[in-house]
Amino acid sequence: DLSALRVEEVQNVINAMQKILECPICLELIKEPVSTKCDHIFCKFCMLKLLNQKKGPSQCPLCKNDITKRSLQESTRFSQLVEELLKIICAFQLDTGLEYANSYNFAKKENNSPEHLKDEVSIIQSMGYRNRAKRLLQSEPENPSLQETSLSVQLSNLGTVRTLRTKQRIQPQRTSVYIELGSDSSEDTVNKATYCSVGDQELLQITPQGTRDEISLDSAKKAACEFSETDVTNTEHHQPSNNDLNTTEKRAAERHPEKYQGSSVSNLHVEPCGTNTHASSLQHENSSLLLTKDRMNVEKAEF
């Protein structure tokens, strides 16, 4: 173990290094160091905050020279020094078990990766560091076993998940096959086929009936047209017969005018059967003409 005197000496050296690497504005270890034209180094955030307070150039807090945003430059070497100082402080805390008085939040800088452990060898070769390295080497064999167990647990979990997924996939297939086998029997399929065939026959029977009705309507229309044509021909046949009657009536009127007047009046009210309204109107006109002729003949006879 380190003596108290040596611990104090190391602590004083760390404090001196820390004062050199402090920012003059925030009085902390410089984060993202930036250098000016006057070779003074500050935190990048502190300098941008200072420049944004005034429009135009501002003055350096140490030498009062003008500073602009374009004049600022990043210093990589200074950032490396800060990183190495942080590593020294971490090693000091691990070796002594004491917390550094002016320690900052170094938890963000710590890294437990194997590459980081290899890099620590180049920091300080001390008894405390050696003991700590031995402890780490002793704890390393235990870690692979834990990793193997965790991997086995994960693989077993994956296997159970896969088996569950396969079961879920197989179950719908089985149910679907069961439904297909038990849903419709052979008799049901035959009945469905016969039902479809009967429906098709009914459709075939319905369509000819409609065509037959249309044919019957067409035949009825044709018969009505033929009947009207026969009526017209009958009226045409009746007209010459009426003319013959008129000639006979004229002759009778010349011989017996008194008797014919009474008979002509009675004939006005008689309509021949089986004739249309057109034929009756023609008869009325003929009878009126005959009456006028008879009157003329009677007057001539009187004179």
Rank of each mutant, 00 (worst) to 15 (best):
L62Q: 11
Q11M: 02
I20M: 06
T68C: 04
L155H: 13
K31G: 11
N276A: 15
Q261G: 11
A253F: 14
R77T: 15
S126Q: 08
N105K: 08
I170W: 02
S35N: 10
P257H: 03
K109N: 06
S266T: 04
Q168K: 14
I215A: 05
K109F: 15
L94D: 09
E202M: 00
C90D: 02
T36Y: 01
V121S: 07
T160G: 04
L291P: 13
R165K: 10
S266Q: 13
T160F: 02
R6G: 06
I14W: 15
N105L: 12
S185F: 04
L204P: 13
V7G: 10
T248D: 12
L158E: 15
E83A: 08
K221T: 01
Y260F: 09
E214Y: 00
E9L: 05
S3C: 06
V10H: 10
P240S: 05
V177F: 15
D39M: 10
P24V: 14
S228V: 01
N243S: 05
I41G: 08
P272E: 05
R132P: 03
K31P: 08
R132S: 03
A220L: 13
C38G: 12
L137R: 07
A4V: 05
L5G: 09
F42R: 12
L51I: 09
L27V: 10
S35Y: 06
G199T: 04
K118I: 11
T233F: 00
L268N: 08
Q93Y: 13
P114F: 01
N15F: 04
R135V: 02
H284N: 05
V161W: 00
E142M: 03
L137Y: 03
C26E: 14
V265A: 09
L268I: 01
Y104A: 01
E148I: 00
G56Y: 02
T163L: 01
N191I: 00
I41S: 02
E22N: 03
L203G: 11
G56S: 10
S150E: 07
T96I: 08
D39K: 15
K259F: 13
H237I: 01
K259R: 02
L146S: 10
K64A: 00
E285G: 05
R162P: 12
R77G: 13
P240A: 15
Q138M: 04
G210E: 09
L164R: 09
Q59P: 14
S264E: 12
E229R: 11
L245R: 14
A279T: 14
P141Q: 07
L203R: 08
D39Q: 08
T248R: 02
Y104P: 15
C273G: 01
V121I: 03
K44C: 08
N276D: 06
Q283S: 02
L151F: 08
R295N: 05
L217R: 09
T68W: 01
N246V: 04
E28T: 11
